[in-house]
Design a protein around this nucleic acid. Structure first.
Lengths: 305, 305
DNA sequence: CGATTTGAATTAATTATTTTCATGAACAGG
DNA sequence: CCTGTTCATGAAAATAATTAATTCAAATCG
């Protein structure tokens, strides 16, 4: 018998295009999903998608159930929001502290969607870049902080948001474009183009350059396009999230390369005060950020709690 | 995490007004449902209904989930119909043979609903009363027969539809109105008003009068209202389904009494040829009949396969 | 073209969840 | 005050979901 679980699976399958990735998305193993799908196809006595093609293609029946999934899951979310509001009311204050430049790319669509669902919540961004955004939480100057590490701290809980790959970008005719994988040493002779933030907020610095003792000259810009522009005109190299540079890759302005074996993985967490962690309007903000981000940004991976 | 199962439960809870009846409706024990509901309330951290009142009342949160249930389950049914149609096509022939007069009361609304979902299925009623409606199946003169007993027959499968209580009805000032429970002997001195059908098609005859050797004088009429009219004017007594007479009971034209200890229970089955049993348009007809009947008629009980 | 990697299916085993059984408490109606 | 009914509960049983380990089948790559 059909359950919402199956529809959530189909949706993940559509978004990721593969069984294994979909499994990761719904926090199950590939095997579990394979079983679940087999069972579903047995129930409807017909295949729901073609496994051969990459990305996988849905059959007519699969498409129909996918449509159903879209219809239902949105309504479920809406109903659960309403139920939560019945319990806790619909008002609240949610000041978000952000420490990364690119975060605005996914934060804006998420906040936009969230505002529609929680019109009575005062939603603000605490602007400016802070050495320690978590301290803003404890001093009541923010209610949620976006951070890239899960540093344990009394009175604060961290909720995983998602993970993604940081890629090195360089002009197409730059010598480094020849190398598939860049190591720390490759940055030694280059100018590093970056956002104007302290070094320890850069994943590239913390995880690659600092351990290797490499300290290349820098040049900075506030805007992603400006960084791309500098890289394209061979003024240096940069490390940016894959999802932030993909549009420029497709236009061929620059090329992207893997940093370190297995790539440079960045993670994002939302830190909130412990006493706020269970609030419905807070929980739903996290759910909205995850949902919108996975739907919008390419190449995200889930981050376990 | 919310699943469709929970929504189906809530719907049954609304339709029946009690946990135990709802449990029966979804083919579970009362205990199972109690656990399920407890789990659901723990998940939403709030009560979903008040147990004290009869019929039970939903809380605001419960109402909201009930609304969700109505929204979703209809869509699920529609999607599953579409999926079945993708597999088997949307056309077919469905000639329904009916042996009971009152059956038309529930058959009409069900057929009406069904026709909208399966416009390409040729739906007909094989009229006239037949000694053995199952033989119509085997001779290809009907595709589905409504019968009141599950007589095993090669090449034919029986699907349970529902069960209900047959009640004795009598004028308010008739002596039998004094008796809460009627036994076979009570019919001895009375005229029995019935539909013009052979005796062995009457549950009252087969299950009560014949075993006791009681054979009261008869009078017959095609129409339920006419039977009620005769009973009300003290021309005799009758036995009819509770759901068929309830409107007249409420108006006070006649009164209803239990027949035999524990009441006289009637059952209805749909008989179809084995080779047709798995057809989607056939299965959905059965589902529609059950769904519409339970939603429309009071006092039905489920009938196990 | 063979070796290697990757993604999905399979079987058996495990784990988690759901359901039942047996029972008790609360309550309504006689 | 009993009696029947309805719902709740804890433990046991049954069932379903999930994983681990492995195989199979394509795709990718030297």
């Amino acid at each position: 018998m059909l359950e919402l679980r199956h529809l959530r699976t189909l949706l993940a399958l559509q978004e990721t295009g593969s069984v294994s990735l979909a499994a990761e998305r719904v926090f199950l193993t590939q095997s579990a999903l394979s079983h679940q799908l087999k069972q579903l196809e047995a129930y409807y006595q017909q295949p729901l998608f073609e496994r051969k093609s990459q990305p996988l293609r849905f059959t007519l029946a699969g498409e129909r159930l996918l449509t159903l999934a879209h219809e239902l899951l949105g309504r479920v979310a809406a109903a659960e929001r309403d139920v939560a509001r019945i319990r806790e009311g619909d008002a609240g204050e949610l000041r978000v502290a952000v420490e990364c430049h690119t975060c605005f790319d996914w934060l804006m669509p998420a906040m936009d969607s969230y505002r529609q669902h929680w019109p009575a919540v005062e939603l603000d961004i605490v602007s400016g870049f802070h050495a320690d955004p978590v301290s803003l939480l404890l001093t009541q100057r923010a209610d949620l902080a976006i951070v890239s590490e899960m540093e344990p701290q009394a009175g604060v809980v961290h909720h995983p948001l998602f993970a993604y790959e940081m890629v090195g970008i360089v002009a197409r005719d730059h010598p480094l474009a020849e190398k598939k994988i860049w190591q720390a040493a490759d940055f030694a002779g280059e100018t590093l183009i970056q956002y104007p933030v302290p070094d320890d907020m850069l994943d590239l610095w913390r995880k690659v350059l600092l351990p290797a003792g490499v300290n290349p000259p820098r040049r900075s810009s506030e805007l992603t396009v400006a960084i791309i522009q500098l890289v394209a005109s061979r003024r240096g190299v940069a490390a940016l999230p894959y999802w932030a540079v993909r549009p420029y890759l497709e236009k061929g302005y620059v090329v992207a390369r893997t940093i370190g074996d297995g790539g440079l993985r960045s993670e994002l967490y939302a830190a909130v005060r412990s006493e706020d962690a269970a609030l419905a309007f807070m929980q739903d903000f996290l759910a909205t950020v995850r949902e919108r981000s996975f739907a919008t940004l390419p190449g995200l991976t889930v981050l376990a709690g």
